[in-house]
C-alpha cells in the first residue's frame, strides 16, 4: 500500500473518548476536511506533551498520520484555548452544546469552512460574554441558517401573511413564525412579543449586541424551547448535552432542599433527644 501523505490542518477539538489504557480518540473539526477522528496516543499519562493541546474546545494546528480507519495525531499546537470556557460551568455547558450541534451535523470528510468560522467565532464570543445563553442562541440561529433550516421571521409560514410583533406563534415543524390567525387555528406554540423581537434583533445583530439585551426568565425559557425544537428538526434528534443544561438549572434548588432536609433531620433528632 502506498504511504499516504500526512494531513496538516487547523481544527477545533469537538470531543474525546477514551481508547485503551492511555489513548483517546479525538473528534476534530477542520475547515477544509470537516469531521476527522484521530487517536491521541498516551494523553492519559501525566507527562503527555500532547494532552493539553487536544482537550475538547481547543483550536489548534494538527499534524495527522493517515491510518486505515483512524488517523493518529503526530503534532498539536494550540492556537486558541479559551480558558474562560473551562473556568465557568455555564460557559462550558453552552460551549458543549455548540460543539455537539456541529458534531452531530457535519458529514465526515466534508469541507465546511463557513460552519468552522461560525463555531470558532462563537466560542470566542462565548468566552468573553456576560450572557453565555445569548451566545448560544446567536450561534444556534446562524447554525440553522447554514444547515438550510433558516427560521422564517417575516411572514407566516402557513399563509404567507406579513407578521406584526404581537400575538404570533412559532412552529419549528413549519420552519418559523405563524400569524395570529393561523396560531389561533392551532398551528405552533405561542411566540411572545419579546421573544419575537429578540429573534429578529439577533438575526441582524452581532453576538456581543445580542448579549447586551436584558431578557427575563420567561422569555429566556421560551426562546430556549423554540430554538431547541428547530434544532431537533434540523438534527432529527435531541441534543444530549441539553440534559446537563437542565441539571445545572436545577442545581441550586437541589442544594437548598438538601440543606433544609438536613436541618429538618437535625431538628427531629433534637426533639427526640428532649423527649
Amino acid at each position: 500500500m502506498p504511504r499516504q501523505r500526512p494531513i496538516r490542518t487547523e481544527a477545533i477539538v469537538l470531543r474525546q473518548r477514551p481508547l485503551g489504557d492511555a489513548d483517546r480518540i479525538c473528534v476534530l473539526f477542520s475547515p477544509t476536511r470537516g469531521r476527522l477522528e484521530a487517536v491521541a496516543k498516551g494523553v492519559r499519562r501525566p507527562l503527555s506533551k500532547l494532552s493539553g493541546h487536544v482537550q475538547p474546545l481547543t483550536c489548534g494546528r494538527f499534524g495527522l498520520a493517515q491510518g486505515r480507519s483512524l488517523h493518529v495525531i503526530t503534532e498539536a499546537v494550540t492556537v486558541e484555548s479559551w480558558p474562560s470556557l473551562h473556568d465557568d460551568v455555564d460557559r462550558l455547558t453552552e460551549a458543549l452544546a455548540m460543539a455537539e450541534l456541529v458534531d452531530r451535523s457535519t458529514d465526515l470528510d466534508a469541507a465546511s469552512g463557513p460552519l468552522y468560522q461560525l463555531l470558532r467565532h462563537s466560542l470566542g464570543e462565548l468566552a468573553g460574554t456576560a450572557s453565555p445563553r445569548a451566545a448560544r442562541w446567536w450561534f444556534t440561529l446562524r447554525f440553522l441558517d447554514q444547515q438550510g433550516y433558516r427560521p422564517e421571521l417575516d411572514a407566516c409560514v402557513r399563509c404567507r401573511a406579513e407578521v406584526k410583533p404581537e400575538g404570533n406563534g412559532y412552529s419549528a415543524a413549519d420552519g418559523g413564525v405563524v400569524c395570529p390567525t393561523c396560531q389561533g387555528a392551532g398551528v405552533g406554540l405561542r411566540l411572545s412579543s419579546p421573544a419575537f423581537r429578540l429573534l429578529r434583533y439577533m438575526r441582524r445583530s452581532s453576538c456581543d449586541a445580542t448579549a447586551q439585551v436584558r431578557v427575563d426568565a420567561d422569555t429566556s425559557a421560551e426562546l430556549d424551547r423554540h430554538l431547541r425544537l428547530s434544532m431537533e428538526q434540523a438534527l432529527d434528534g435531541q441534543l444530549r448535552s441539553g440534559g446537563f443544561l437542565k441539571s445545572l438549572e436545577r442545581a441550586e434548588a437541589i442544594g437548598r432542599s438538601a440543606a433544609s432536609a438536613a436541618a429538618e433531620r437535625e431538628r427531629e433528632e433534637q426533639d427526640r433527644a428532649v423527649v
Binding site: 460551568v89 442545581a251 434548588a253 442544594g255 437548598r256 438538601a258
Partner: peptide, 8 residues
Amino acid sequence: SRVIGAMG
C-alpha cells in the same frame, strides 16, 4: 460547586 455552594 453549584449544588454544594447552595448548601453553604
